[in-house]
Every structure is written in structure tokens, then in C-alpha cells.
Design a protein around this nucleic acid. Structure first.
Lengths: 207, 207
DNA sequence: CGTATAGATCTACACTGTATATACATGAGC
DNA sequence: GCTCATGTATATACAGTGTAGATCTATACG
């Protein structure tokens, strides 16, 4: 994990890890099994760090909204500190003990919010996909500026090819406060959760 | 792209591509520049396929909701057909001509929905992050079952360690219709978009 | 015809994960 | 104290990666 933090996931080779722990590459195999298993261990460790995060422990008895907010910001912070994990999280089923322990906390918050049990796993997937997807976009560079500034970007295409861009040009030129945007987006996700809960309280609906 | 579709992104080596086109590996370099540039070209081509998707063309004059729905399902279908692209999309800034052309369509739909111009880029990121994140989870295997069935998964931890899982056990054992869940989640995202638009119509709010 | 130039080729380098065979150190049973 | 099994560490080797650098070739132009 130290190697991945410092030089990126690509730098995590069996040889590099072995050198770090002062051993020959093949000596790792009896311990970790394979490289894929090593990556699994890294993800598991990160998830258990999230599960035991002091901020999450402190909020354990708070209302469901606070608990979900703390989860979101802790997860975001953890993934920003360890960006290598985002890609891995999409590739692995969330079935390890560490993963289900985290998910159980989210289930609990959603149940307290009034989301019907039948809907809880679905809404959990929706919420955590927002968090993971958003942070993956931030740290991966999808939200990044690329080589061109916004003005140059619009210049790549023929005049009038991007009518809607023209109508929001001022917003595109303004700098973005990503912390604020994440927070705001998550608040909207929380309202979405509320509406699912309220929908169930309102009784059965058509279809 | 054919190689990636057939044997996964890892199988896309310069040597494999060269063999496919009947040429030596180094002959590719004057044409594509580097492997990273080749991957950029692949992503660009996929995005332009999405932009010219018949379904999206057909819905070009429909109301904003239909346009966004068609975008979501076309993007999902495209990414399911070409799963190698999901990881790449998180890693590259969306600044290529092909990418901004697609984004412009979403901007246009959001403007028609009544989202204020100032908020349009933010809401676009939110909507497309949901679509991309959800599909990346599907094709990457995050939503997959892993090696253990749901019951075995819960058995990994000591009794009572997963109280919330216990309360939603029946939902966890039920099979999931992913098409339906995606559709439902996206409808909720659409309501979220509506609420942003409605919030702006309602005039300024207390912070 | 000669020559410039763009493209293709060949070789080589420093990497990757890991199969295989070998060496070694430690603890158990007699 | 001795043997032997077991788990760990090592060394070597193989097939693969992206691509730098030098060389070769075929086409177009004056």
C-alpha cells in the first residue's frame, strides 16, 4: 500500500514489494498466494480502515443522515489518500468480510431512514455507486481539465456544433469547488433516499 | 476494439494489434503514437459511436426526459458490449471532441428540464457518474456474487456482527433484475434533476 | 534516372508474474 | 542426539510487455 500510495498501482510489482520487505520476489508467494490475492488484501485492508475510521465510530449513534454523510466523506477521503483503490473496487465483488461490514452500516442507516427492507440493497448500491463513481472520476482524472482549457476545448469543433455549451459557457469557465460539489451532490442523493422512504410510507403505488 | 471485445483489454498489446492488422509491432507507432494514444483512440471511437447511435438520433427531438433515458440506456448498452471502456473512461478527462459532443446533448436536455445554466455542468457530472459508475460496477463485477452465495457471505463473520443484513435477508436472497434496477435508479436520478430545476424556479432559498 | 521521404522491420532493453527446482532452518517423535 | 517432515527462502527460467534505436524498402517527385 505504501508503494501504491507513493508511486501508483502500476509500481506495485512482486519484485518491488519483495525488495521493500527485504526478501526475494518468490518468497512472497507462500504468504500472499498471487498478485491478484495481494491486491485483494490491499482492498480488504483499506475497507477495514474505513470501517474502523474514528469519524465513523464517533458518528455510530447519530441519526441516519449524519451517519451516511460521515460514511461518504470518510470514503472519499480514504480514496483520495489511496487513489489506487478506486479501480480495484469496481472489479471485485463486495463479498469480503471487510466489505460486508461496511455495507452493513449503510444498510442500517437506510433502514433507519425508513427505506423498506426490500429496497435497501438496491438503494445501498445506488448510494455507494455515487460515492465511488464520483471519487473515481476525481482521482482518475475524468473531471480533470486535460490539456486544453474550456475555451480551447470548445474550439475543437466547428462553430455551432456545441449549442448547449455556448449557453452554459460562463459556468464552464468558472473554477469548481470539488469538495462543495461532492457535498451538494450527496445531499441530493440523501433527498433521493428520503423520497424512496416517503414513497413506501405513502402506501402502495400503481405498478 | 475487436481484440478488447473478444479477449479483454489486457489482451490488447501492441504485438497483438500488429498481428491482427498483419504488420510488425513497431509499424503501428507512426500511426497511433503510443499505446496510451491507441487507448484514447478506442475511447474516442466508442464515444462517437454513442453520439451517432440511431436510438439517440431518433430521440433527438423528444422531450428532455426521453432524451436522457435514451442516453442512459444507449450508454449502458454500449459499455456492456465493450466493457473494456469503463475503466478507461474514469481515467481520461472528457475533453476530446467526441466526448464534448455527447456531453453537449446532455447539457441540452438539462437546460430543457429547467436546470439553471450555472448548475448544468454539475448536474451533468452527477447524471453521467451514476450511469458510468453503475455500469462499471455491473461489468467490472462489483455487483457480482463472488464465490460465495449471500448466505455463506454472512456466515464469514461472527454471529450478530451484521445486524442490518439480518433485517434485509430476504431481499438479499432474492435474485436481482439488473435492467430493472438500473431503470428504476435512473428514474430516481431524473426526479433529482427535476428537483434541482424546481428549486431554481421556486426562487432563492435559505442557504 | 536519382533521390528524398514515409513507412515497415529488426534487434535489444528493462520490465512483468510466476512455474520449477533447490537449499535451508526449525520443530516433532523416537 | 538423530532422523525426518514441513514451511519458508532462493535462484533460474520462460513467455510476455512497451518502445528506443538503427536499418531497410517502396513510393513519389524533380
Amino acid at each position: 500500500m505504501a508503494i501504491a500510495d507513493e508511486k501508483g498501482l502500476a509500481a506495485v510489482s512482486m519484485r518491488a514489494v519483495a525488495q521493500r520487505v527485504g526478501v526475494t520476489p518468490m518468497a512472497l508467494y507462500p504468504h500472499v498466494g498471487s498478485k491478484a490475492a495481494l491486491l485483494d488484501l490491499m482492498v480488504g485492508r483499506l475497507l477495514s480502515m474505513l470501517g474502523e475510521d474514528p469519524a465513523m465510530r464517533a458518528a455510530a449513534d447519530a441519526d441516519w443522515r449524519t451517519r451516511l454523510r460521515v460514511f461518504a466523506s470518510s470514503a472519499r477521503l480514504g480514496l483520495q489518500t489511496h487513489p489506487w483503490a478506486t479501480g480495484l473496487l469496481f472489479d471485485r465483488p463486495t463479498v469480503t468480510p471487510e466489505a460486508v461490514a461496511v455495507i452493513d452500516k449503510i444498510y442500517s442507516a437506510l433502514l433507519d431512514a425508513g427505506v423498506p427492507g426490500r429496497e435497501v440493497p438496491r438503494v445501498e448500491r445506488l448510494v455507494s455507486t455515487f460515492v465511488l463513481g464520483y471519487v473515481a472520476s476525481e482521482v482518475g482524472g475524468r473531471f480533470g481539465p486535460g490539456e486544453l482549457d474550456p475555451r480551447g476545448r470548445r474550439g475543437q469543433l466547428p462553430e455551432g456544433a456545441l449549442p448547449a455549451h455556448a449557453r452554459v459557457a460562463e459556468a464552464l469557465d468558472a473554477p469548481v469547488d470539488w469538495d462543495e460539489e461532492f457535498k451538494q451532490g450527496f445531499e441530493e442523493v440523501l433527498r433521493l433516499v428520503e423520497s424512496v422512504a416517503a414513497g413506501s410510507r405513502g402506501g402502495a403505488r400503481a405498478r
